[in-house]
Amino acid sequence: MLKDTGERVIPENMKITNGLLMEHVARYHFAAEYVSGRVLDFASGSGYGAHIIAKSCKHKVSEVVGVDRDKDAVTYARGTYYHPLTTFLEGDVTDPALPGELGKFDFILSFETIEHIAEEEMFLSNIYQMLKPGGTLILSTPFGEGRGKPCGQTFHVHQLKVEEFHELFDSYKETEFFVQKGVLIQPASVTEERDYPLGIAVCRK
C-alpha cells in the first residue's frame, strides 16, 4: 500500500467526486491533446497520469517514461499501472546526471512539481536539456505569494506569483499560458489570471 502524504493522488483510494483527483486527472487529459512521440512524466507519483497518457495516446506516442524519487511510488506505479508503452523509474528531478541517463524527449509533462523544489534552476535546466529541439513542455503549478515566501502548504517550498511563473519560460521559442479552477482549464488571455488558483504553461523549444 502506497502511503498517502495528504497531497499524493492515489485514485484507488479516492472517491470519483474527490476534487483533487478530478483536478489532477483533468490536466493529463488536457495534455493528451498535445503529446506525441517519446513522453516524460516528471515526478510521476503513483503513476496514474503516465497511464492516462499511454492509454489515451497509444497511437501517437512511442514511449511514456515516469520518473519519481519515491521508491515506493515507483514500485506502486509498476504494479498498478502496467502498460507496454510505459516505464517507471526512480530518479530525482534535480539530479544533473539525469539528462545523460534518460536521453531526449518529444514531450515533457511536469504537474504540481516545481512548488516542491528548492533547486528550481537545476530542475528547469534538466527539463530543457532533455527536451528535443521543437519539443514541448507542459508544466503546472499553483499561484501564491511568491518565491521565498511561506505559503501555508507543508510540502511546498513556496508558490509563485503569476509574473514569476511567466518568467520561468523566457528561453522557449513560444509559450501559451492557461489557468485552471477545478476541472476547468482555459486560455489565460480570456480572464484575469489572479482569479484562478493554478497556472499551466505549454512551451515549445
Rank of each mutant, 00 (worst) to 15 (best):
L85H: 01
R69V: 13
V64N: 04
K60R: 14
L89C: 11
V64C: 08
V67Q: 06
S56F: 09
G66D: 02
A73C: 12
V61P: 04
D70I: 09
R69E: 10
Y82K: 09
S56P: 01
L89F: 08
D72V: 07
K58V: 00
A77V: 03
C57Y: 03
C57Q: 05
R78L: 09
Y76K: 10
H59T: 10
V74S: 01
T87I: 07
C57P: 05
A73S: 12
V65P: 04
T86C: 14
Y82S: 11
D68F: 10
E90M: 13
A77E: 02
G79V: 01
T86V: 13
A77P: 04
G66F: 07
S62W: 03
T75R: 13
Y82R: 14
T87L: 09
F88V: 07
C57S: 14
V64W: 04
V64H: 03
V74L: 05
V64S: 04
T86F: 00
G79H: 12
T86N: 03
G79M: 08
T75C: 00
C57E: 04
V64Y: 01
V74W: 03
G79Q: 15
V74Q: 00
K55C: 04
Y81V: 07
K71S: 13
D70W: 03
Y82N: 11
L85W: 06
H83T: 07
F88L: 00
D70G: 06
P84H: 11
H83C: 06
C57L: 01
Y76G: 00
F88I: 04
P84S: 09
H59L: 13
A77R: 04
H83R: 11
V65Y: 07
D72T: 08
K55L: 08
R78P: 00
R69C: 13
K71V: 12
G91L: 14
D72E: 12
V65R: 04
C57T: 07
V67M: 09
P84F: 05
Y76R: 11
D68H: 12
S62Q: 13
H83V: 00
V61E: 02
T87P: 00
G91S: 09
F88Q: 03
D70Y: 00
E90P: 02
E63S: 14
T75N: 13
G79K: 15
T80P: 04
L89I: 11
L85V: 02
F88T: 06
T87W: 04
A73E: 07
T86S: 15
L89A: 08
L85P: 00
K55M: 06
P84M: 02
G91H: 12
E90I: 13
A77K: 05
K55S: 13
R69S: 15
G91Q: 10
K60P: 01
T87E: 14
T87M: 11
G66K: 10
K55P: 00
G79C: 05
T80C: 14
V74Y: 04
S62C: 08
V74C: 08
